[in-house]
Structure formats: structure tokens, C-alpha cells
Nucleic acid binder design. Structure first.
Lengths: 199, 199
DNA sequence: CGTCTATTTGAATGTACTCAAAAGCGGTGG
DNA sequence: CCACCGCTTTTGAGTACATTCAAATAGACG
């Protein structure tokens, strides 16, 4: 099966937001990826396993989460089309991970093994640059999230989420958003009532 | 003033934990850095400013924090010797930042401008690889912190902090540790009492 | 229409915060 | 060596934010 190698290709388009690629580089990069279709509720990564692959989401929606000692799920990240999803710890160290990644909607992924990723870093410095940049951006957004969690009450965290990811608010059940911002679904419901009250 | 270029150099030693450098590369890298001494309580980065520099700590201890709307400080990171300190958002985007970085102890820094960093990425791919790797590691540790904040009560977060950074617990006032784990100093004091109670 | 899941409601509880004040601790000067 | 100052840590009472648990209600889908 031949992969797209032009600008219809969401991944190459994403990379070219950050730097310019030669056609040969595009082909080299794409040859390292595989395609994976995944049904709703299916797992891409299971806790305890070593994450052999990271994934770039072409369509659908994936969710990365942690299950705590009491069985509660805490969502670390949603990934819709044009986003990356991975258990970074397990993927970079190739140690067993603590995170789960599953599909909230039927999804289509470009997947890349750690092995091929490292080879590609050697063969194509621009690809390593791309990862340096998206990792920087990821770090920055995680830092904002830590700051928000430390400094804002739940109601403000919810409003920020709504402002930042309006698409997700429509698309996802509220209970998942509650899990992302770190509160119970019941409490989120109460907050939403408050908000609707003071139009 | 000539900089050290051998393994007595903490920065080069740090880089060589991740990859091997040629002598020429070592010299090239070191030539991009400046040295800065900073007194206790002095600022390295002020909120509202553009972070021209990031810093590698040679000695002392720096603290990166955010001041919220009510004037409370929330510590994002401590950086002792052999750690990096930066307002990543401001440094990478060269936009005004929201973070402050000051010295908790008199400190000595290697500083690197964004300009020289980007030039060095072009001239020396290994240096970009080094940053790709430490950024990956940074991202991973921020993710663990988010998960902890979402899933653990304050007392467990404190115990994890003590286990993970025993040096810092001795070295820093408890009130700063409270700020890092996201609680008030008064409440931390109560938790510590609990812990000492059940020897 | 019935079933499954998501959302809302309410009462009781717990975790962490606020504010005020006291106690401890380290350094400095007399 | 003691007294005092500034800063950190502790204590306690009252309060607020968020959770738990149980149950009712609403929505989506076959």
C-alpha cells in the first residue's frame, strides 16, 4: 500500500509548519511510518507494556491516561487529528510504561517505532529538529498546565479548557473533561450550573 | 577569560552523558556560552521580559516560579548544579514570559542566548540532539508531575518529593517545598506532624 | 421502546485554605 | 554571652472547595 507523499499528507504538512523538506526527505520519512486503524475503545498502549510505537493521529481521537491506586482514571492528553500521542516515558526509555492510550473514536494513525525514529534522526537531521521543536512545544504546554493546576480553582481551569479546546468540548463527554482538569464529573456538573446561572 | 574545556567542565560532562563529542565540537559549544554570577535573591529572569538566555547551573540553586493573580508564588522548578533553568515559553518563542527565575543561593551559571543556541544547532547537530534529549526528559518529568498532582493527595506528593530530592529538602526552607507541591506552608507543617507521629 | 451511558442533584464528609498568633532558630551587635 | 531581629515553622479555629455516595433524570442509539 502506497502512502501519500504530498501536502494531502497531514504528517508532512505538520512537519513543514516547522521546517522545509526536500522530496527525498519526505520519501525517507514516510517510509519509516506504518498505518494503523483502531476501533473505538481499542487500546494503542497498555500500562505495563513497553511502547514500541508513537503515533501521529490522522483522524479520530485518542486519549492518554493514568489509572491510580484507587482505580480512577486521570487523563494526561487528548490527541485529535494532527496531534501526536505517546507514552513518552516508555517510548523514549523502552521501559514498561504506566500509561494507557485508547481510542475515543475510530481512529487512523501513522505509527513510528523507536528504532526507526532513532535511525531517522541519524539519516535526516531535519527530522530530529522537528522532534526537538515539537518536544519543546509539548514541554511548554505541560508547564502551563502545571501552573494552572497549581494556581487556579477548578472553575477557571474548566473555562480555560473550553476556551483553548472548543472542538473537544463538543466532541467529548463532560466526564472526560472533568478527568482532564482534575475534578469529579459531579463537581463539574455543579460548576457548569454555576456558569450557566450567571449568563 | 578562557573557559574550561575538559571533563572538569560540568556542562560538557553533562552533554557527554548523552553522546560523545569531538574536541573541536567541545570548543565550538563552549564558545557560545557566557558565564554569569548571581547573588542570592537576584533575578535571572523577570516576568514580562523576553528571556534572551537560558542557563546551565554550575553551582548554587535557582528557582523558576509563577506569581498568580492573588500574588501567590507557585514554583515550577528548582535547579541546582548540573541542571538547566529557563522560561521555556519565553526563551523558545522570544515572547514576553510569565515566569520569574531568581537565585535561592549565590549561583554561577553558563548562559546561552537563543540566537547562539539556534546557530549552534545548525553548526553542530550533536548539540541539537543533546537538546532534543534533555527536552524529552524534561517533558517526561513534567508529565509525571501532572499525573502526581492529579492522582495523589498532598501528603503523598510531599513524600515523593522527599524521596526524589533529598538534597533539596535539607537545603531549602519548607515553605518553598510547599509551594512546589502545591500546598500552603501551614498545611505542610500539619502533614509533617502527621508523618512524624506515625514513626 | 428499552437499554446503556452521561449528566444532574443533594446531603454528608474530607481535604486543604485562611487568618491570627505563638514558638523556634540563626545570625548580629552590644 | 546575651538580646534582639528577621525569617521559618507550628498551632488552632473557622471556612471553603471539592469529593463521596446514592439516586434521579436526560440523551443517544439500536
Amino acid at each position: 500500500m502506497k502512502l501519500q507523499t504530498n501536502m494531502n499528507n497531514l504528517l508532512l504538512a505538520n512537519i513543514q509548519k516547522h521546517l522545509r523538506l526536500e522530496p527525498a526527505e519526505e520519501a525517507l520519512i514516510m517510509s519509516a511510518f506504518g498505518v494503523k486503524k483502531i476501533r473505538r475503545k481499542q487500546f494503542f498502549v497498555h500500562e505495563g507494556d513497553v511502547s514500541k510505537y508513537c503515533a501521529f493521529v490522522l483522524s479520530g481521537c485518542m486519549r492518554t491516561y493514568f489509572v491510580d491506586a484507587n482505580g480512577f482514571e486521570h487523563i494526561l492528553q487528548f490527541a485529535i487529528e494532527d496531534w501526536w500521542a505517546a507514552d513518552m516515558m516508555s517510548f523514549t526509555t523502552q521501559q514498561p510504561g504506566k500509561l494507557n492510550i485508547d481510542a475515543l473514536e475510530p481512529s487512523e494513525l501513522f505509527i513510528l517505532s523507536r528504532e526507526k525514529q532513532l535511525a531517522l534522526f541519524d539519516e535526516c537531521p531535519k527530522f530530529e529538529r522537528y522532534f526537538r521543536i515539537i518536544t519543546e512545544n509539548g514541554l511548554i504546554s505541560q508547564q502551563s498546565r502545571i501552573i494552572e493546576n497549581l494556581s487556579l480553582p477548578a472553575i477557571d481551569r474548566y473555562q480555560n479548557f473550553v476556551n483553548r479546546y472548543p472542538q473537544l468540548v463538543q466532541r467529548l463527554p463532560k466526564t472526560l473533561i472533568a478527568s482532564y482538569i482534575g475534578i469529579t464529573p459531579e463537581f463539574l456538573s455543579k460548576l457548569r450550573k454555576q456558569l450557566s446561572g450567571k449568563f
